[in-house]
Amino acid sequence: MIKNKKLITAVLAIVGLVAIVFFAFSLNNSKTQSVEADQKASKVVSKNTKKAAKAKPSPKKDLDEWKHPSESKDYPDLSKYPDAYIQVSIADQKVYIKDGKDTLYTMKAATGEKDSPTPKGTFHIQNRGDSFYNTESKEGANYWTSFKDWGVYLFHSVPTDKDGKYVESEAHKLGQRSSHGCVRLTIPDAKWINTSVPEGMKVIVE
């Protein structure tokens, strides 16, 4: 009987020791997993922080861009560039003042819509005027300069209404095909072409 009691006591001691070891192992393993999880979370946060730091905010379009020259630099002095010409890129929605392969100045533009496209080809500067208003399209513009059909296809400012006021909803469309076939420009860009580009200058629309 005493032997049995000793045996039972020994077994209980062993079971208790195993339980203690198992509990200690489980606790340690839980802490390890918690640390690893914290480290992974820290890495994720770190990566997201780096991505956020690298991400640049999308530039906001300047809603008043139609009131200003397209570039901050001065317009070119065409007296120094006797072979200069104008290149209109429908794909880029830009007007380039070129001298050979060199671009002297770049202007934001809006060419004709698909159902009233700006004609492609090689033309030349023709007549010009201060302003006009078309009763059919119910739009006008300032500083117009013709490059085809003597007053039909023009460089001009963003549109005006019948009272001569600029139509801001249309002015904000620089950079997209939105005209009736003419080439819309900012007010200062249109004025510069109107007052500075000589008659006969080559115009390439492509």
Rank of each mutant, 00 (worst) to 15 (best):
T111D: 00
R184L: 02
M201I: 01
E199G: 11
D92M: 08
D130M: 12
L185I: 07
I187K: 12
S146V: 05
Y133I: 06
Q93F: 07
V158S: 08
E168M: 06
K138W: 01
P198E: 07
I125H: 00
V152E: 14
N142V: 03
I187R: 11
K138Y: 09
D99W: 05
M107T: 10
R177Q: 14
D115P: 06
K94N: 03
N194M: 04
V95H: 04
Y166V: 15
Y81A: 03
R184D: 03
E113F: 11
A190D: 02
Q87V: 03
T135G: 10
K148N: 13
S137P: 00
K101Y: 05
S169E: 13
A171F: 10
G164H: 09
I187F: 04
R184W: 05
S157V: 04
T160Y: 07
S146H: 01
G129T: 07
Y143S: 12
K173Y: 08
L185W: 04
G151Q: 00
G121F: 07
F147W: 14
D99E: 13
A91T: 14
Q93N: 06
I187C: 01
A110R: 07
E168P: 00
Q87M: 14
V205S: 09
A171H: 06
S116V: 07
D149P: 00
T118M: 10
G164T: 12
T145F: 05
I193Y: 09
L185E: 08
V167S: 09
E139W: 01
F132Q: 09
W144M: 02
S89Y: 01
A84G: 10
D189I: 06
P117K: 14
G200T: 10
H124L: 11
D149Y: 11
I193E: 01
R177M: 13
Y133E: 10
P117L: 07
E168Y: 13
T106C: 10
T122L: 10
N134E: 10
E199F: 14
T111E: 05
Q126E: 15
P159V: 06
Q87D: 15
S179N: 01
T186Q: 04
K108I: 02
K165R: 14
K101A: 12
P198C: 09
F123E: 01
G112I: 09
K148M: 12
K94M: 02
I204H: 00
A190I: 02
Y133Q: 11
A171M: 05
I204M: 09
